[in-house]
């Protein structure tokens, strides 16, 4: 943990302003397209087997006739202290030096322990070989591998985009800057409710917003220290 907080090292984080977010679902679709996610079917939906790395979590409170519902876009919370990586028996999930929790599809044995350990239920399992009509294979994002049957997958903060941004920065002979890299969900958000950036840079938007009095984390009490921060709805 300390390593990634070292100066000069990036620590990527996301802030979702629930006051602005309208739960439209553009982020969900953009994430699916960007990461070659499975198509889904009614049968799979009924079994809870549709994989969407980012999904809209409805959190509803009913008090008499008064209702409050928060529609919370939920990617992997990218914990600073991830419960999932501890339990992996084969090093298939790990936290990299920039704080992103990764998944090695080619090593995962599919024991699904990490899914059970994740209190946010933000990891997913490929219950079968994903079915792709040949036509749709044409639109695969070439930067992201298609997951095989029987392995776990998860949101990686569009790590391939970071990789690309780094390469471009190197090619241009400069350091990686914050704006160089945005995950698909932050890029697409029509309400500009998702802000992404470097938490180690105290001047960045995410760092500033994390200090907002409205800021909170999901299941904060578990001490997982998510790098996805939410801003409460309301004034």
């Amino acid at each position: 943990m300390e390593e990634s907080r070292r100066k000069g090292q990036h620590r990527w984080g996301m802030v979702v302003d629930l006051d602005k977010c309208t739960g439209c679902g553009a982020c969900v679709v953009a994430c699916s397209v960007e990461n070659n996610q499975m198509l889904g079917s009614p049968e799979e939906a009924a079994m809870g087997r549709v994989i969407r790395w980012l999904k809209i979590l409805p959190k509803t409170e009913v008090e008499g006739s008064h209702v409050r519902q928060n529609l919370i876009p939920m990617p992997c919370q990218q914990c600073e202290n991830p419960p999932c990586i501890k339990v992996c028996p084969v090093y298939a999930t790990f936290k990299n030096e920039e704080g992103i929790v990764g998944q090695v599809y080619s090593r995962c044995i599919g024991c699904r322990y990490c899914l059970n350990a994740c209190p946010y239920t933000c990891k997913f399992f490929n219950w079968k070989k994903p079915l792709w009509p040949d036509e749709m294979r044409s639109s695969f994002n070439p930067s992201v591998s298609v997951r095989p049957n029987g392995v776990v997958e998860k949101c990686l903060f569009c790590h391939h985009r970071l990789q690309r941004a780094k390469e471009e920065a190197v090619a241009q002979g400069r350091n990686l800057q914050e704006g160089d890299y945005q995950p698909a969900c932050a890029e697409v958000c029509p309400a500009k409710a998702i802000v992404f950036g470097d938490l180690n840079d105290s001047e960045s938007d995410v760092s500033r917003l994390c200090k907002d009095p409205r800021a909170f984390h999901l299941l904060e009490e578990l001490g997982t220290e998510p790098k996805v921060t939410y801003l409460r709805e309301g004034v």
Binding site: K86, V87, V90, R107, C108, I109, G110, R112, Y113
Partner: peptide
Amino acid sequence: DLGRPDRMLNVFLYGRYESPLL
């Protein structure tokens, strides 16, 4: 229960003792 029983030897090749499964 394994999704990839063909990779079960990974437990020995890449085993992590921090995992209760090990």
